[in-house]
C-alpha cells in the first residue's frame, strides 16, 4: 500500500466518492437537478478531472474547488456545483479512476476508448459518460 501526499491510498477504492466540479450550468438539468452526460466527457487532453471526497463535508468539498479548481490566471473558476459518483460506477462503465496528485485528492477518469473515426470515438465515449452521469448525484453549491 502506498500513500499519496494527501494521505489517501494510491489506489482509488470502488467505494470512494468522486466529485466532478461543474463549470457549465448546462451540465445540470434545470427541472430535475439531474447531471447530464457532458459533465463526464473527457477534456481535450482525454482526462476527466475529479476529486476524491469520501467522508468530506460539503464545505470541505467547496474548499477544494476554491483552492484547486482554478483557471489559467490562477483564480478560482466559477462552478455551479458538483456531480458526485462512486468509483465503482466509473469502473462499471469500463473506464477507471486513477489518483493523480498534483492537487491533493485529485484523480482522473481514464481509459476512454480511442479509435480512428473521431465521431464514432465520441459516440462510444458518450455511452460511457451517460452511464456515469446516470448514477451521479448533484450537489448544489451553497
Amino acid at each position: 500500500m502506498s500513500l499519496l501526499p494527501s494521505g489517501l491510498d494510491e489506489h482509488v477504492e470502488d467505494t470512494e466518492s468522486l466529485s466532478r466540479f461543474l463549470p457549465s450550468s448546462s451540465w445540470i438539468a434545470k427541472s430535475t437537478g439531474r447531471v447530464k452526460n457532458p459533465a463526464f466527457l473527457p477534456a481535450p487532453d482525454d482526462d476527466t478531472s475529479v476529486y476524491r471526497v469520501t467522508g468530506l463535508h460539503d464545505i470541505e468539498i467547496w474548499k477544494i474547488a476554491n483552492d484547486h479548481f482554478i483557471d489559467a490566471s490562477g483564480t478560482p473558476h466559477k462552478h455551479h456545483g458538483a456531480a458526485l459518483v462512486q468509483a465503482v460506477e466509473v469502473r462499471k462503465a469500463e473506464i477507471d479512476a486513477i489518483a493523480q496528485e498534483g492537487p491533493p485528492r485529485h484523480a482522473n477518469l481514464r481509459g476512454w476508448p480511442k479509435i480512428n473515426d473521431a465521431d464514432l470515438q465520441k459516440a462510444k465515449r458518450k455511452v460511457i459518460a451517460t452511464k456515469i452521469a446516470d448514477k451521479a448525484t448533484f450537489l448544489a453549491n451553497s
Binding site: S26, A29, N37, P38, P42, K122, R125
Partner: peptide
C-alpha cells in the same frame, strides 16, 4: 431535448431523459 455543451469539442449536446437509465443523447 435538454441542451448542454460538450467539453471536448464544443458540440451542442441534445439529451432526452425518460427516467433513470433511460437516456438518449446526440451531439
Amino acid at each position: 431535448p435538454e441542451l448542454a455543451v460538450d467539453p471536448d469539442d464544443g458540440a451542442v449536446s441534445l439529451e432526452w431523459y425518460a427516467g433513470p437509465s433511460r437516456i438518449f443523447s446526440v451531439s
